[in-house]
Amino acid sequence: MTAAPVLEVSGLTVNYGGVAALRGITLEVRSGEIVGLIGPNGAGKSTMLHAIMGLVPAQAGEIRLGGSPLLGLAPERVARSGVALVPEGRRIFAGLTVEENLRLGLAGRRSREGAEEDVEAVYELFPIVSEFRRRPAGALSGGQQQQLAIGRALVARPDLLLLDEPSLGLAPKVVDIVFEALAEIRRRGLTVLLVEQRAQRTVAFADRTYLISNGELRLSLTPADAGDSARMVAAYFAA
């Protein structure tokens, strides 16, 4: 049985200054699924997330969230229609306190009801965020900032969570913490599109993983394919 699609992308084409970053991408993420998106640097993974968020204009194609079109909406409208992004490099507000950073995530909610409970739930999920809540967020380590950035997205109570390379630049031990958090998010039944550089770990973790290269979808992989590195390598380097 397949759940209803939360995110539907069809024929998405995005150009950057005349160069095609995405060429007719079609994919979907169904309710409760964690879908991975892997590929080499410059393949168009982040562009994909930016197009969903309304940060870059698309030349062709469609993006739908729960059936409603997203293309053409300003980023804040996309956020408030139920998409939360954990951006690459975390982008936390270093000069604001940890708690203030977390509360900024509430701007994406459609209803204030249950907001305080959701903030408390993030403190439970990430005790370190709770412990440092009065400190400037800039004083946190990279891994702690990543937890804060994920928490900030969770308090928006999104229908779809986008993660842009959450493990980038983190020590292996900290990467484990991030993936543990993702596992907890899976238990809560959230729908996730996860962009990652760590191909095998992502394929093993996600329900399905798309591999994109040079702006095109090359492969769709399941956890069973995690050991099949030859296929992935071939797709990575195919022209």
Binding site: L55, A74, R91, F93, L96, R109, R152
Partner: peptide, 18 residues
């Protein structure tokens, strides 16, 4: 708070729904 966030990083503030 939203004004302080927007002053620090406008794009990220908008991505949060501000």
């Amino acid at each position: 708070l939203q004004m302080r966030a927007a002053a620090a990083d406008f794009t990220t503030a908008r991505l949060l729904g501000i």
